[in-house]
Design a protein around this nucleic acid. Structure first.
Length: 175
DNA sequence: AGCGGGATTGCA
DNA sequence: GCAATCCCGCTT
């Protein structure tokens, strides 16, 4: 399997979001800036957005310029601007034409998806970039960081999606 | 509990 | 074209 610090292979993200998400809780998000400075964030909280039937998922609107990347084979960076201010970071998963993404909601160092995007200095140019071949944002396996245990909770901020999809426990939080 | 802020979408 | 909405964070 993987060793600590090892970069995650692209085929890893072709699996279903429900299977991939728990493993993201054992990974570090690594950002290398233009000035060669590197920061590493330990992922602690993620949310699953899965399929057109998921009314909380942007892909519930179907294939649009914004959701296009979720229809490609998994392993791409999906960023979008929310409330005119925050770039939220998602990693796409699943095979082609199965639109899914996993939102990075929290890290040990920085909590909140908006703050994470700000710390990583994300912008539109990251849209569609492959997480396994990027030279400025990637994931590293970090299996020894936590116990692998996590709690499941409803996702945040999707009250509009109806009771079922708003309550489905697709937020994973490590402890 | 209210607002900033701008892209995205749907409807005309 | 326009108006409504939005996977948030910060301030009151």
């Amino acid at each position: 399997m993987y060793k600590a610090g090892e970069v995650v292979h692209s085929s890893f993200f072709l699996a279903d979001a429900l299977d991939v998400a728990p493993h993201l809780l054992k990974m570090q998000l690594v950002r290398q800036f233009n000035n060669e400075q590197i920061i590493k964030l330990q992922i602690t909280e993620v949310e699953i957005y899965r399929g057109e039937e998921d009314l909380g998922c942007h892909a519930s609107k179907g294939r649009t310029p914004r959701t296009e990347v979720m229809y490609l084979p998994g392993g791409c960076i999906y960023v979008y601007l929310i409330y005119g201010m925050y770039w939220l970071l998602n990693i796409t998963t699943g095979p082609e034409n199965h639109p899914q993404a996993i939102l990075i909601r929290g890290t040990k160092e920085i909590q909140g998806p908006g703050r994470i995007g700000r710390a990583l200095e994300l912008d539109k140019s990251f849209y569609g970039e492959e997480i396994n071949s990027s030279d400025r944002l990637w994931l590293e396996w970090c299996p020894l960081y936590n116990s692998g245990k996590y709690q499941t909770l409803p996702r945040v901020g999707i009250h509009y999606a109806g009771e079922y999809w708003a309550n489905i426990p697709w937020r994973l939080k490590s402890f």
